[in-house]
Design a protein around this nucleic acid. Sequence first.
DNA 1: TTGTACGCGTTATCAT
DNA 2: ATGATAACGCGTACAA
Lengths: 348, 348
Amino acid sequence: MGTITIKDIAKRCQVGVSTVSRAMNDHPDINPKTKKKILKVIEESGYVPDNSARNLKRVDARAVAVLIKGIGNTFFNQFIEILEQECQKRHYSCVIQRVEEYENEIDVALQIAREKKLRGVVFLGGNFSHSGEEFGRLKIPYVLSTINSGEGNNRIASVSVDDFKESYKMTDYLLGLGHKRIAIITARKEDESIGKLRLLGYQRALSDQGIQFDEDLVCYMKMHVDRYSYRSGYKITKELLSRKTPFTALYATSDTLAVGAIRALFEAGIHVPDDCSVAGFDGMEAGEFCIPGITTIRQPAKEIARATADLLFSMIDKKEEPKRVIFDGELIIRESTAISRIKSSEEE
Amino acid sequence: MGTITIKDIAKRCQVGVSTVSRAMNDHPDINPKTKKKILKVIEESGYVPDNSARNLKRVDARAVAVLIKGIGNTFFNQFIEILEQECQKRHYSCVIQRVEEYENEIDVALQIAREKKLRGVVFLGGNFSHSGEEFGRLKIPYVLSTINSGEGNNRIASVSVDDFKESYKMTDYLLGLGHKRIAIITARKEDESIGKLRLLGYQRALSDQGIQFDEDLVCYMKMHVDRYSYRSGYKITKELLSRKTPFTALYATSDTLAVGAIRALFEAGIHVPDDCSVAGFDGMEAGEFCIPGITTIRQPAKEIARATADLLFSMIDKKEEPKRVIFDGELIIRESTAISRIKSSEEE
DNA sequence: TTGTACGCGTTATCAT
DNA sequence: ATGATAACGCGTACAA
């Protein structure tokens, strides 16, 4: 005996397969009594319909997908939750698909769009330095979220904060506290996406204040280490300390990195924020509950998620044009940053 | 024009569909030249094969799946990584599937096993209080990981630590420090799985030392709050403090809960570990890098993952019988626990 | 080495 | 309200 199929159910119920299909899919044209009977038999027999066959046949699945690169980024969790709610509201189903670091998210999107007959896709995370041409292969609406599609790419829909601007904001805040030697932990050198924008914002803020950019204060994330982990922040900071380059503030471009960084400083006998200020980015739980609480730029995850859904569905339904939506980040000052003591002594 | 299919490719290349199929699937019986040509056309045309159709035809996919309930549990990340490696080693593909909190993991397993023609399944996380009968519906090999299938269930394969024993170990350690009033944060009252085992271990350790169990020291997690989050630990501890029930140690049954708890204590002016010891469970990054470092029971995630793969594949390949594999947890003493001051003063 | 034709399990169309 | 049957796109046995 092989697997049990819709035909077997039909036979047992002494009806046609189409009737069984109707029973399963809540079609209107069916006698409630026969439907009930069929569903009962299905239940008893433990029949499980084959989704592959369904997807193959189905023309339209009324579904969208979220492609996530870098699961484990806790930031994405509430994001997904909201997105799912928004989908439910509109009676869409929502498939969540993990994308490996080495995979090309567009290829993955292409595949599962075909497989599941999707109407739209949301890209979450990842290094989006794809050319417009690559995106052109994807014929259904899509939105990049948490990612800036960049000045030149108005044709690509995106919802995010302005990473350059927010990074500038944070750096400027640290500068305002009197810090002149601000180290930064940023993405790998090859990064052409968020990491680069945040680094650029930092550099600009520095130069606007007439402060010389010092490459010795920049820590690039290692390729192999799993990016944005606590350990990553910890190790990089250790290495930074071994350089003996003095700094009075450390700007880690994610809250998790900041937590690890604070630990490394702590072990080196450097107290935060008295001896050194530390700032993060993202506004995640990690930075809210640790001690000291971490000064950060909060990305309005909920608003971004909702706007992402709105934009995607408006493109699907009303054939609206792609556009870029930018949210403001919020500077949240907590306990990890303080006025530079160096400044005070210098000024006296 | 609709979607482009294998037939279109065949036409353009002036070959039969089977030749195209052979080219895509690396079949041996094909002229390298024609293969090359076909692949080139595929590349140019942007053709994407329909996985639904493939899965439908395919008898055997040489694939397994990991079903995860409670993504965001950082504990699972390295676990998955290893599991994927083990799959690769054996030339299996591995599909990772998120399971919603409200979903029945067995139903999900049934569905995707059918859809993707799986050979095996790993269940990660979730409250496994399913009856043997329910599991009986799943005809392919499966392993519960990080979960104890329980004394009575030798027929169900599982790899985990002994949550009862490890929880006992931790409680006993706290007791050994002289703590007599040990509060505990545990899963919701209805939990019949890990949470219950950990609570039971705590109770047993207490009674073995002749200490009265006090219901006032038990904090159950709220249903709605997202379990095992920092915030959850924070809120519950706040509530515990408002009870005014004195305690000198707090045992949070996960490291993330512990982080939140420490924050709540901190805000109440209670210093850890001087005024109150805090312990966690799991051995996650969160507890390793925060300040103070959290005393915990480390679950050997890597070993568990490897053993899970070994067991699953041995069941698949060699038709070995399901069995229970138990690993020892490791008590890691860090900075969040210390000798009870109450004890010292009492003894003087 | 290659092409033809059938069938996988389901849904949709068209009769009845 | 129901049943027969034709697709859906692909892999594969078989024939060439």
